[in-house]
Design a protein around this nucleic acid. Sequence first.
DNA 1: ATAAACTTTCAATAATTATTGAAAGTTTAA
DNA 2: TTAAACTTTCAATAATTATTGAAAGTTTAT
Lengths: 167, 167
Amino acid sequence: MEYVEAKEKFISTWGSLGTLWGINKAMAQIQALLFISTKPLSMEDIMEELKISRGNTSMNLRQLIDWGIVTKVLVSGERKEFFTTEKDVQELARTIAKERSRREIKPVIKVLEEVSSIKDDGTEKTKELIKQTKALRELTDDLDALMNKLVNQKQNWLTKSVIKLMK
Amino acid sequence: MEYVEAKEKFISTWGSLGTLWGINKAMAQIQALLFISTKPLSMEDIMEELKISRGNTSMNLRQLIDWGIVTKVLVSGERKEFFTTEKDVQELARTIAKERSRREIKPVIKVLEEVSSIKDDGTEKTKELIKQTKALRELTDDLDALMNKLVNQKQNWLTKSVIKLMK
DNA sequence: ATAAACTTTCAATAATTATTGAAAGTTTAA
DNA sequence: TTAAACTTTCAATAATTATTGAAAGTTTAT
């Protein structure tokens, strides 16, 4: 496999994987492109490489910046903006995990709390609703805590965690 | 909040959360409905409660069965099929984690392996592609291993894991 | 103040994904 | 074997989501 084929394969796989971490295809592809680029890219560069429109590029870049995954960089002598992504995979994973917790998991926990704390009217179905949503809330809470725990340990958090859990 | 409102809120929240664990809305809603039901439900019951068509119900139930989350149950004296879902949240989480690993994470690891093992032609961009996809492969591998580790400990895996990681 | 260089916005459109419903298929009972 | 009871399939359609492109907006240089 040659460079160009490998690059395209990586970008498209990472793009379709976007859903796994909750973002759209173009967003994931832009991030992938920046991730393997040796230098910051302009909007023009990105449009050309991925064959997507200016509007699409602009919107998705802004979202990536909003997620804290991409940053603008100033290239001296150049008027247009250039962009780069976090290059350290562990830092990247940390950022994504935190954002997903904030955007998706926390709101769900809130709903589960509301639902699980309705008045028990003594009927079987109400008891079941309360019991099951409470269990789900506890699980979600624990998973979220675990994820944040993992992700907040700086340096080699993954390796360390794996070792701890092996014992 | 009354029972009916709470139930609807739970089903719709869980439904829209479907994307987080990679399944569609109807599938997630059917699972949610079964999860808080005190007894197995028939296709008719599900169609009526969720106001979805027979075809949709049939297809999504099959998918849930395929995921190993829902099972058919025989109700004596009844000709039609009834369905129930895994009621234990920890077991449910275990099943989902395993399926996602198998369906999504493993195939991505494979692609990352292929891409990261292309021939190093000495150019900077090739070196960067290899380096970054290798790092991503290691991270993905580790996360997958960690997840499987967590999920394979029977009884109270989550609590135990949280405790271990706190140390 | 003007204009060139660049970015953002957003209504229109395209692409994708989910849903319907009716016909075909299957199982069971008599 | 027939027919009723039930489930599955799948082409058509609806709903949702992503993308375009051109007009409007912004910034910078002169």
